[in-house]
């Protein structure tokens, strides 16, 4: 296969970026998208040029490192897939593709297709955890979890934090990511003690990181490689509203009313 790539090149966070066109030659349909870029980079290195920088790690679709826009779609045309698990058989010989990094104020470009997603780390630090004393592993089945909740919690926990939801959102909102992290813990008994503080803190951090507001459009759900569903956002909203009601009640009680 032979393809024409229009790739975003940007030297560093402060440099002005631009699109550069490359020819991808000697590509086979069973290569992954990242392997195709490896071939292009080999040639660039051979010519003494700077290779295209992109993030990647496991190349199995489970780590959340990779991801960029291919022809205006986060992770490319294949549903429920990361770019590392997208194969060249999804394209046709002679295709012309535009490759762009995630675009969001909260995800500044570091180099070429690599963006800084540490805003996600700070969201996790605000509430993506449970506080338990460490020690020996608890007995299996000591805490019972209804089957349905276990399944839903697992659906939410499948989030790999790649950032495609933010990239696809017309508002650059991080609601799907945040909601997945919140829901995963809220559906399990271990998540209950800090439930309302978590909802409040994690959403406050998300807002502080300058992500946009959710307008329930659903583009996030469409590109999510782990098919995280939009209703997790409603679940988080529910806890957020309950948290405010509880704060109000606690406030009244403290005021002796």
């Amino acid at each position: 296969m032979k393809l024409t790539l229009r790739v975003w090149r940007q030297k560093n966070a402060n440099a002005r970026g631009r699109f550069v066109t490359y020819e991808a030659k000697n590509i086979t349909p069973d290569m992954s998208f990242l392997e195709m870029l490896d071939v292009v980079n080999e040639e660039l290195i051979g010519r003494g040029e700077e290779p295209i920088a992109f993030e990647h790690d496991c190349r199995e679709g489970i780590c959340g490192s990779c991801g960029f826009m291919i022809d205006g779609v986060a992770h490319g045309p294949k549903r429920a897939s990361t770019v590392c698990q997208l194969h060249m058989r999804s394209f046709r010989d002679g295709d012309s593709l535009t490759i762009e990094p995630w675009r969001a104020k909260a995800f500044p470009v570091i180099k070429d297709l690599i963006v800084d997603r540490s805003a996600f780390d700070r969201i996790i630090q605000a509430g993506g955890f449970i506080s338990v004393p460490t020690g020996s592993a608890p007995d299996a089945n000591a805490i019972l979890v209804p089957k349905e909740n276990a399944e839903l919690a697992f659906d939410a926990a499948a989030c790999i934090g790649c950032g495609a939801c933010v990239a696809a959102c017309p508002n650059a909102s991080a609601m799907l990511f945040t909601a997945a992290k919140v829901s995963h813990l809220h559906l399990l008994p271990q998540g209950q003690p800090e439930r309302y503080d978590r909802a409040r803190n994690i959403v406050a951090t998300m807002d502080k990181e300058e992500f946009g507001g959710c307008t329930n459009i659903g583009e996030c759900e469409a590109v999510c490689p782990k098919e995280i569903r939009l209703h997790f956002i409603a679940l988080m909203n529910r806890d957020l509203i309950r948290a405010s009601v509880r704060d109000w009640k606690v406030g009244r009680r403290a005021a002796g009313m």
């Binding site: 762009e100 969001a104 946009g212 459009i217 659903g218």
Partner: peptide, 19 residues
């Protein structure tokens, strides 16, 4: 305003999938 501030650089190409 939040949306515009959250994406100061817009995409050259952006497709709508299910919205």
């Amino acid at each position: 305003q939040m949306s515009h501030a959250a994406r100061p650089v817009s995409y050259v190409q952006k497709k709508v999938i299910q919205a």
